[in-house]
Amino acid sequence: MHLYIDSPNFTPIASLVGGMLIGLAASVLVIYRGKIAGISGIVAGLMETENIQQGHHLWRTLFLIGLIGSSFIYQFFAPLPEINISASKGTLILAGLLVGFGTRMGSGCTSGHGICGLSRLSPRSLIATVSFMFSGFIVCYLFLHAI
């Protein structure tokens, strides 16, 4: 294994600034709405109808409208960066099923565990983040280089 940095594609400043905006959004949501910005939980919560609190669907819908509409707003300021998807239709379906099922079974994804959970210094989220990162590295290696 030869690990070396892919300098043409490495974008430390943009990634750091974008990350800070993600952290800002998570902070705004918890400070002004009292909710955790975990995208998988927000989406899955839309399908719940039993034992829910008032406004359960409203805040989720509003947050997701903002999220889904972000590319539209971005285009007023700059051309949208490249979105390069190489997975086949079958791979997309398998990946989507795994992501949907796995995030519900594991109670969170990159945002809920990886950002909010780690920011709260949650040991549970650290275990979850290490698990999905490790799995991501292994499966990526197997999928691209071994199979």
């Binding site: 995208i39 998988s40 989406v43 999220l67 998807i85 190489s86 997975a87 791979t91 997309l92 398998l94 990946a95 989507g96 099923l97 795994l98 992501v99 949907g100 099922f101 796995g102 995030t103 519900r104 079974m105 594991g106 109670s107 994804c109 990159t110 945002s111 565990h113 275990i127 979850a128 983040t129 698990s131 999905f132 990162m133 490790f134 799995s135 991501g136 590295f137 292994i138 499966v139 990526c140 999928f143």
Partner: peptide, 17 residues
């Protein structure tokens, strides 16, 4: 669950957000 999620994330390069 997290291991399954990580596998799907690596296959497509997409997580939910």
């Amino acid at each position: 669950g997290s291991v399954l999620f990580g596998a799907g994330w690596a296959l497509a390069g997409f997580c939910p957000g």
